[in-house]
């Protein structure tokens, strides 16, 4: 039992420290911009139905890469700021996921009363959480 606990502790500590090298931040931004441009471009051409969700997932992957990439000097201050930014992003993200569908529903009900839907896709919530984390992390870095 003790061995299992020790193994679990070691694994969790190792996974908890997982980060991508700093170079992946630029790659992440390139993926985000590329996916964004393709999403705009696809409005002007006929495309199969699977393109939109795939582009959305690629964009989320780009944001995740930016989010988990190391800074040029990743020290304990950065780890502390990163932890704070994830905590804030999680809290704000959950609140957003709870409140946003009702706001959208209320607005849609006013604009188009017959077709209002109480919906909140995973893309919006994940994008919001990742964006909030990246923005908070940069704001905390500027003010530390």
């Amino acid at each position: 039992m003790r061995d299992i606990c020790e193994w679990e502790r070691n694994k969790l500590q190792r996974w908890g420290k997982f980060q991508l090298p700093n170079a992946y931040k630029k790659i992440g931004w390139a993926i985000i911009i590329g996916a964004f441009l393709l999403m705009i471009g696809k409005k002007f051409v006929e495309e199969p139905s699977w393109v939109k969700p795939v582009l959305r997932n690629i964009m989320l992957l780009g944001f995740l890469m930016v989010s988990i990439s190391k800074e040029k000097i990743e020290d304990e201050l950065m780890a502390s700021l990163r932890a704070t930014s994830y905590r804030l992003a999680l809290i704000i993200g959950v609140l957003y996921a709870l409140v946003q569908p009702y706001v959208t529903y209320a607005i849609e009900s006013l604009l188009d009363p017959g077709n209002a839907e109480l919906d909140n896709g995973y893309f919006q919530v994940l994008l919001y959480i990742l964006l909030v984390q990246i923005l908070f992390f940069n704001a905390l870095k500027r003010n530390s």
């Binding site: 800074e71 000097i73 020290d75 304990e76 201050l77 502390s80 870095k141 530390s144």
Partner: peptide
């Protein structure tokens, strides 16, 4: 910062009392 292997920003934050370093640091 170079001697300790941290960023200059970390040293600055400690000096300004905005960050409390770990026991190791």
């Amino acid at each position: 910062a170079k001697l300790l292997g941290v960023s200059r920003q970390t040293i600055n934050s400690i000096e300004k009392n905005r960050y409390v370093p770990s026991t190791v640091l």
